[in-house]
Amino acid sequence: MSIDVLPASNFDDVATLVGPKRPDANVCFCLSYRLQAKEHTQLRGPERAERVRQLCAETPPPGVIAYDDGEPVGWAGVHPRADTSFARNRKIPHIDDLDVWSVWCMRVRPGHRKQGLVHPLLAGAVEFARENGAPAIEGYPVDNRGEKVDLTMAYVGTRATFEKAGFEKAADTTSVLAGFPRVLMRLDLR
Rank of each mutant, 00 (worst) to 15 (best):
D150N: 12
E163R: 01
T16Q: 05
G139P: 00
P46T: 15
R107C: 08
V126A: 05
F86Q: 03
S2V: 13
K38R: 06
E47T: 09
Y155G: 10
D150I: 15
T16P: 08
E131Y: 08
S2D: 15
P20A: 10
R53Y: 06
R109Y: 06
G111I: 12
Y155Q: 07
P135I: 03
D68Y: 11
R53P: 01
S2A: 08
D12S: 10
A49N: 14
H79M: 04
V108L: 05
P72F: 04
A66Y: 01
A66H: 02
L121N: 00
V5H: 00
V183K: 03
A171L: 03
D4W: 12
V100P: 01
P80A: 09
E163H: 04
P110T: 12
V149N: 03
V176E: 11
L117F: 08
R44L: 12
T174A: 13
A25F: 12
E50S: 07
S102E: 09
L55G: 00
E47H: 11
M153A: 15
H112C: 15
G166Y: 05
G74P: 04
R48N: 01
D83M: 06
E71H: 15
R182G: 03
H79V: 01
I137H: 04
P60G: 02
A66D: 05
S85R: 12
P7Q: 08
G111Q: 06
Y33H: 01
E168M: 12
L43K: 02
Y67E: 02
A178H: 10
Y67S: 03
A25D: 15
E163S: 14
L121Q: 07
L55M: 12
F11P: 01
E39S: 06
K21T: 13
R81T: 07
N144S: 14
H94P: 06
S2T: 14
V118M: 07
M1K: 11
R90D: 07
P60R: 00
A165Q: 00
